[in-house]
Design a protein around this nucleic acid. Structure first.
Length: 716
DNA sequence: GGGGGAAGGACCA
DNA sequence: TTCCTGGTCCTTCCCCC
């Protein structure tokens, strides 16, 4: 079999995917065997190595399946595919565009070059930028030892004991990159930056314009001495990228814009040199005897039968030396994420706390680009390097910390429950948002909140009345901060380092002359004009945990909560905050499926079941009841619930959470009950409202299909 | 069978 | 002792219409 050096399950032998990748400038002619031996000795037995072994075996299995498939291909199938390939080849040939001059610029060992600028002593030493865990780049002295980017520092140190490892400093690299980009813009104002050290330019127009320029204008002397720039010039992006790697370091290569030159250039080019062909694809093609682009062309009919349409079309383009001829900038962003790697983490409190931090960071990033997305994905990597992603798609787009955390937390909880009673031993956690809303929905978020805020500030009669009646109502609640998993992260909002996350709630300066601000969540006056302090207060209110008065979203959502027409005015903000002001509210529970037991467990003494389908919010002590519904992502749709996929049959259904037999065989109702129970459990655990004996819960946590959101109800 | 969501993976800098 | 981060795209599977 041509699957390369397959290792045995015992870990003996040669693991090819961990071997040195010397497909990088400055690494030609190295003693690969010696370097690989050191890499293997440093890695063998580690969890990382074992996981790589597993992945290698998966790739080998893929190759075996492919070879089996190949063995069954008939001559007839092959000739049919050949005809298809020929037809497409001639179509593509007709459309070949050699009119553009595309430049790919790659700043060589960029981070290392910047560090050397600041510390010239490093000039003659083997050095790398990064940490003992991971290197971002290395200089040419280090590459001679096999030290390269994407290699852990501790292995690099074994390859080259004198290696100097400099920590990364992205602010510095960004500054230099900005300097260089100014030059790019002179040549092509629409240039496409790929990273801090790489960009594509279309200089066709520039070349046309400069024909008549005097010599003095034709030379740029701005580039700093310490940055070496490799340039590839070709008729398309794919070829330009390959060309920039041709004369490293600090050289350029131009591929003439004629068909024969392109064909000659591509002939003996190893497939691995093409951007987009990585170690797995290289290995799969290698198993078919394909190592160069000319092989690729020769075996195209076979590839058309063995690979997907997208893949073989891509291969065909490569074999013909075709690539994109126009540089597209400002393409729509598809997702945004943040993730963090850390030492082993098994404690629930830490995990939920980190989850919230990630949501805060991501919310800030989303805010900067005014983005909101419907799909929230939680990414987890356990200590064995196994990666899992769990996603949930909402009916409407979300962006705030609370909205993201509401989903991410539930996804996390499900995963924790899945391995329970064992702890979930993590080494990485990430949160991603995708399925972005249309441009119309990407407007800044806070206006209506701030509007509400200002409205309350001017409404002095209302606010003074509240504060005069019960000035200290929240004292006990605020001091009663639970130490449970969720609140561990909430506590962090008291720390100065966490303040930035709150900026999403209020970003405008308070009006002059006022010495307090009214919280749009709890309606209390906060004696401060400092936005950081005020935002922290709002954070706490929104988290709902400090209030200790939570109702799960499922309770309200599943019953299609509405306010009676007598309930008073309400404000619907674009962020999804529904703010009701009313003296007493009879909230119609208009749809079926309410389980009164669940509502009764709401720890708010002022919320009670009034009639069969009415939730009454009232207070003995205060005629002014205020209700705030936090609706992540906008007003809740009053639609029928999504059909559930649980496959229960039969008349008697026992809830896997509360263990009680339910008097229904309606799956929708039963599922809703299970959701409610699960949410109650989450509430209790996270809110520290009551202890839950987990041992009585034999429920498979996977039964919890979706995340629950928090709504906050409280009274003054 | 097509569309779309979920999950996982390849690949890139 | 120690193997990143943030992004895009593709494939496969599954469910629903």
């Amino acid at each position: 079999m041509a699957t390369g050096g397959t290792s045995s399950s015992s870990g003996e032998g040669f693991l090819s995917r961990m071997a040195l990748n010397d497909n990088k400038a400055g690494m030609e002619g190295l003693n690969r065997d010696k370097i690989n031996k050191i890499i293997m000795e440093s890695s063998k037995g580690s969890r990382f190595y074992e996981n790589e072994l597993k992945k290698e075996q998966q790739v080998n299995q893929r190759i075996e399946r492919m070879m089996l498939q190949k063995a069954h291909i008939t001559e007839q199938q092959l000739s049919k595919a050949q005809a298809q390939v020929e037809k497409m080849t001639s179509d593509l040939e007709r459309g070949r565009d050699l009119s553009r001059v595309i430049v790919h610029v790659d700043m060589d060992a960029f981070y290392a070059a910047v560090e050397t600028r600041d510390c010239p002593d490093l000039m003659d030493k083997p050095m790398a930028v990064g940490s003992m865990s991971m290197l971002s780049t290395s200089n040419y002295h280090a590459r001679k030892f096999g030290v390269r980017a994407a290699m852990p520092g501790f292995i690099a140190k074994k390859l080259c004991p004198n290696l100097v490892i400099v920590p990364t400093n992205f602010d510095k690299y960004r500054a230099v990159s900005a300097e260089v980009r100014e030059v790019f813009a002179d040549y092509d104002p629409h240039f496409l930056p790929m990273s801090l050290d790489e960009a594509y330019l279309d200089i066709s127009d520039h070349l046309e314009q400069r024909r008549g320029w005097p010599e003095a204008l034709r030379t740029h002397l701005i580039l700093s001495m310490y940055v070496c720039v490799c340039v590839g010039i070709a008729p398309n992006m794919m070829l330009a990228k390959v060309c920039s790697d041709k004369n490293k370091p600090n050289g350029q290569y131009r591929l003439p814009s004629n068909r024969q030159a392109v064909i000659d250039f591509i002939q003996d080019l190893p497939v691995r040199k093409i951007s987009g062909i990585g170690k797995v694809t290289e290995k799969m093609l290698g198993a078919l005897g394909i190592t160069s682009c000319s092989h690729l062309g020769q075996e195209m009919a076979l590839l058309a039968l063995l690979f997907s349409e997208t893949s073989w079309h891509h291969f065909l383009h490569i074999s013909m030396g075709l690539g994109s001829t126009h540089i597209e900038r400002d393409g729509e962003r598809k997702s945004m994420s943040t993730e963090r790697t850390f030492g082993e983490m098994g404690a629930l409190e830490e995990q939920f706390s980190l989850c919230k931090e990630l949501c805060q960071d991501l919310a800030q990033d989303l805010q900067k680009e005014a983005l909101k997305g419907k799909t929230v994905t939680l990414k987890l990597k356990n200590v064995n390097f196994e990666v899992k992603t769990r996603a949930w798609t909402l009916p409407c787009a979300v962006a705030t910390t609370e909205e993201l955390f509401a989903v991410a937390k539930d996804l996390l909880k499900t995963e924790i429950d899945n391995v329970s009673p064992q702890p979930l031993r993590l080494r990485l956690m990430g949160v991603r948002v995708s399925s972005f809303a249309s441009a119309d929905d990407k407007k800044p978020l806070q206006k209506s909140i701030v509007g509400f805020l200002h409205k309350k500030q001017t409404d002095s009669s209302s606010t003074s009345q509240i504060s005069s009646h019960k000035p200290n109502t929240n004292t006990s609640a605020e001091t009663d901060i639970s130490m449970s998993a969720l609140t561990a992260s909430d506590k962090m909002t008291h720390e100065p380092s966490a303040h930035a996350s709150t900026s999403s709630y209020c970003s405008t300066e308070p009006e002059s002359g006022t010495d307090s601000l009214t919280c749009p969540v709890c309606f209390r006056e906060v004696n401060t004009t400092e936005l950081t302090v005020f935002n922290r207060h709002i954070d706490q209110c929104l988290s709902g945990v400090t209030m200790g008065k939570l109702l799960s979203r499922c309770v309200l959502d599943s019953v299609g909560l509405r306010l009676d027409s007598s309930a008073g005015d309400h404000t619907e903000s674009t962020t999804g905050l529904l703010l009701y002001e009313t003296s007493t509210a009879n909230i119609s529970l208009s749809t079926v499926g309410l389980n009164p037991v669940c509502l009764n467990t709401c720890p708010n003494g002022d919320v009670s079941i009034h009639r069969a389908n009415t939730l009454k919010v009232s207070s003995q002590s205060d005629p002014h009841v205020r209700v705030c519904l936090l609706s992540p992502g906008g007003p809740r749709p009053m639609t029928t619930p999504k059909p559930e996929s649980r496959d229960h049959r039969g008349p008697a259904l026992t809830c896997p959470v509360c263990q009680e037999t339910q008097d229904t065989n309606d799956l929708t109702l039963f599922n809703r009950h299970v959701d409610l129970c699960l949410n109650q459990e989450v509430l209790h655990e996270l809110g520290g409202l009551a202890s839950v004996d987990r041992t009585t819960h034999t429920a498979p946590p996977a039964a919890h299909k979706g995340p629950c959101f928090r709504y906050v109800l409280f009274t003054e």
